[in-house]
């Protein structure tokens, strides 16, 4: 208990570190994931292949392996990224974007074919169909799964603890090693801080899903 209070500054800093990491890699993976989704639904065959390969490979490998790649393997290929924050952002972004891609893609697929057909039949161009008819609806059904992906991302930032980035799990480990007696409190405190982020997001996703389920 005492350690938790005394070290609250450190813990608060770690909380911010986790949040920063999640926010930056979240924003980047939204962008890259959407690009990948565009690849996967595009009419151009090679792009689809690239998108599919990327998503399949990333989804079937552990995030730890992604970190391992950037920390240990990439340098032998001549790509040297500074360990810590930047490697964490790169790994989390590349990993999460595969899941973002799938969420966006299933959003696009959930739009009824009739919608696009109707748009075309009243003379909309491809661009108009996409931007005014399909994407607005795709977004709606993609948002709840996207929030789930972000929740997973928040928890996944903890993997950075194993690769030299001082976020919450790394700090909890450090503090516990220093004060083994207070371990229980430290872990409960850190756990609560994760829940403060993840549970509201989960509730938000549920609400949105419920309110959107019947709107269309």
């Amino acid at each position: 208990m005492e350690t938790f209070i005394e070290e609250f500054g450190t813990i608060g800093g770690a909380f911010l570190a986790t949040l920063t990491l999640a926010a930056i890699s979240g924003a980047l993976s939204l962008v890259w994931g959407t690009v990948l989704a565009a690849f996967r639904v595009s009419p151009v065959g090679p792009l689809r292949t690239v998108g599919t390969l990327y998503v399949e490979i990333v989804r079937n490998t552990p995030l730890t392996l992604m970190f391992f790649f950037w920390v240990f393997v990439a340098p032998s290929l001549g790509i040297i990224a500074p360990i810590g924050f930047r490697i964490a952002v790169i790994s989390l972004t590349l990993y999460t974007s595969a899941f973002v891609c799938e969420a966006v893609r299933s959003g696009i697929n959930s739009v009824g074919i009739g919608q696009a057909e109707a748009a075309r039949s009243i003379g909309f161009t491809f661009g108009q169909t996409l931007t005014q008819i399909v994407l607005p609806q795709a977004w709606r059904s993609a948002i709840p799964p996207l929030i789930s992906v972000l929740i997973a991302l928040v928890k996944n930032t903890s993997v950075a603890a194993g690769f030299a980035y001082a976020e919450m799990v790394a700090i909890s480990q450090r503090l516990t090693n220093r004060n083994p007696v207070d371990g229980l409190f430290i872990f409960f405190g850190i756990g609560a801080m994760y829940l403060v982020i993840t549970i509201p997001l989960g509730i938000l996703a549920q609400r949105l899903e419920r309110s959107m389920g019947f709107a269309r």
Partner: peptide, 24 residues
């Protein structure tokens, strides 16, 4: 698209539209 649950964990969502999601 959401799965039965907001999936999380390092695994992340393994299935966006059922298990067949994205199976090439």
């Amino acid at each position: 698209p959401t799965g039965p649950i907001p999936q999380s964990g390092v695994g992340g969502p393994a299935r966006e539209e059922g298990a067949s999601a994205g199976d090439p």
